[in-house]
């Protein structure tokens, strides 16, 4: 199962990287979202997927599954959610004021 997850992480990272390298701002933002999913799965996988019972509740005597990666992912998901929301608003404003969503046209003038 872990190997499968790692392959999935690899696929997501390559998709995300492909999207990030494109010129369209929306594609780049989608790329960052895909990348963040990939790293969340990576954190889950490195912690060991299901190594025992539910921790803390005391239904079993052990061994328990490590609950920490899930806490970490929860935090990371919230953060990436906030960042993506802000990025989308910012991208919209950039499109409105600069009149383009192509990053190669957002380079800036040499005389500025």
């Amino acid at each position: 199962m872990e190997s499968l997850m790692v392959v999935l992480v690899g696929v997501l990272v390559s998709v995300g990287t492909y999207l990030i390298l494109s010129r369209n701002i929306i594609r780049i933002i989608l790329g960052t979202a895909v990348l963040s999913h990939a790293v969340h799965l990576l954190i889950l996988t490195v912690g060991g997927l299901k190594t025992g019972g539910v921790p803390v509740l005391g239904q079993k005597d052990g061994p328990f599954t490590d609950a920490l990666p899930q806490a970490l992912i929860l935090t990371a998901i919230v953060i990436s959610f906030a960042t993506t929301a802000l990025l989308l608003v910012l991208a919209y404003r950039v499109y409105k004021t600069n009149g383009t969503d192509d990053v190669s046209e957002l380079r800036g003038m040499p005389d500025e």
Partner: peptide, 26 residues
């Protein structure tokens, strides 16, 4: 706005590398 979107994107990707490093460390 033009410069800030670049700043934000670069920092988002950097934070992503930070998370990858944390995953490997853990």
């Amino acid at each position: 706005l033009r410069e800030s979107i670049k700043y934000v994107l670069i920092n988002v990707v950097t934070s992503w590398i930070f998370l990858v490093a944390l995953a490997y460390l853990y």
